[in-house]
Amino acid sequence: METLSAGGKIARFFFAWVLLFLIWLMFTSTLALQEVLTGAGVSFIIALPTNRFFTEVQLYRFKPLRLFYVIEYLFVFLWALIVANLDVARRVISPKLPINPGIVSFKTKLTSDFAKMVLANSITLTPGTLSVDIIDDTYYIHWIDVKSLDPEQCKKDIAEQFEKILLKIF
């Protein structure tokens, strides 16, 4: 992580404070004055020692267009989640268990750690795949129904649709 100026540190602290306060509001789900004041105080105290864990990129990377891509990503992800579950349901119910499991690998073009984490979580929740390990830029994926062992083909089948949008976001 690069060293930050004093302004960057203050911005980071405010980011953590606001984020924790929003989480507090969602947890209590009231707007009574004493609850809100307690929440502001508690999230201030928690943000003091922990603010360096919350963000690596500062707020200047934030652009409204990225928010649009985040929403698009959410819709693609929800659709993939539903397809994944119908697929698993079909395999579980059918009496012959039509599975051909194996662990395949492919390389990603994503660079930041956070983007890699998002991609790994998305892969885990989508049709028939489970991320086992990430070493630098190589993903190792347990695939319940292996169609090919070629890394390019695997990537096309598993991760292409998510990676395309994630490259635009980050």
Binding site: L81, V88, A89, V92, G128
Partner: peptide, 14 residues
């Protein structure tokens, strides 16, 4: 499911 990885797949997704 026959082994731990497939159990994880079926269990966690569904």
């Amino acid at each position: 499911m026959p082994d731990t990885y497939n159990r994880l797949q079926a269990g966690t997704k569904a």
